[in-house]
């Protein structure tokens, strides 16, 4: 597993006495796109939050070859582990440009930041047109694009995405997934949590299926998409 950018062993997350994640192990290799699918309440968001230390957890989290489960969230971003949270979390009262600047908060290389900003604007021309607008006035799809663009401004090595397609019109869902593919092509590793299992499995290399806090299936995306259990439970067949 020398190439794994993320390696998780026996991760557990508890809310009070209730276990939401019950000891799961999984990995993301360098440059890989991996998805985590599962029904509502399966524990996907809890898993991502534990990875970025928004929640306390048990078990081991190895990122970039080092153990990080005692790091603080704001330190992990600096190491290239970025989360685009469920519900996007754009700063509604700040402009689009300021949101993007927040994504580069820890960076001191002004020239590099400027170059990445140009790249994000090239990837997402809508954001350039609206750079002075308050983020709260953007459409849901534009906000999702902004949230992803903002994460890119931190030059992530591993990007965690929590349901980026949630609540978006089909055309916007397509655009968001195109964007995710474009990001992966630049060499960023991706861990994608999705309700839209069909699209997630079409997009990613590998996948994990999560049910009530446990990983019940792990395989290549193609094999998962062909698995009758997955087809019945998540692909509506």
């Amino acid at each position: 597993m020398a190439k794994a950018v993320l390696d998780v062993l026996n991760l557990e997350v508890h809310y009070g006495g209730i276990a939401a994640v019950k000891g799961i192990s999984f990995a993301v290799e360098e440059g890989e796109m991996v998805c985590l699918i599962g029904a509502n309440g399966a524990g996907k968001t809890s898993t991502l939050k534990a990875l970025v230390r928004m929640l306390p957890s048990r078990g081991e989290i190895h990122y970039g070859g080092a153990r990080v489960d005692h790091d603080e969230s704001h330190v992990l971003v600096g190491k290239g582990l970025a989360l685009v949270p469920e519900g996007r979390g754009v700063f509604a009262r700040m402009s689009v440009a300021e949101n993007l600047a927040m994504g580069a908060y820890l960076r001191r290389d002004a020239a590099g930041v400027q170059k990445d900003l140009e790249e994000v604007y090239a990837l997402l021309p809508r954001l350039r047109e609206r750079q002075r607008q308050l983020a709260g006035t953007l459409s849901g799809g534009e906000q999702q694009m902004l949230a992803i663009g903002r994460a890119l401004m931190g030059r992530p090595r591993l990007l965690l995405l929590d349901e980026p397609s949630m609540g978006l019109a089909p055309i916007m869902v397509q655009r968001v997934f195109e964007l995710i593919r474009a990001i992966a092509e630049r060499g960023v590793s991706i861990l994608l949590v999705e309700q839209n299992a069909r699209l997630a499995l079409e997009t990613c290399h590998r996948g994990y299926v999560m049910e009530s806090g446990l990983i019940t299936l792990a395989d290549t995306a193609a094999k998962l998409a062909a698995d009758p259990r997955v087809r019945a439970a998540y692909l509506g067949e």
Partner: peptide, 14 residues
Amino acid sequence: RATAENPVVARLMG
């Protein structure tokens, strides 16, 4: 301003 608006996300920005 980011912290005032959403401290959780601000932390995610570093």
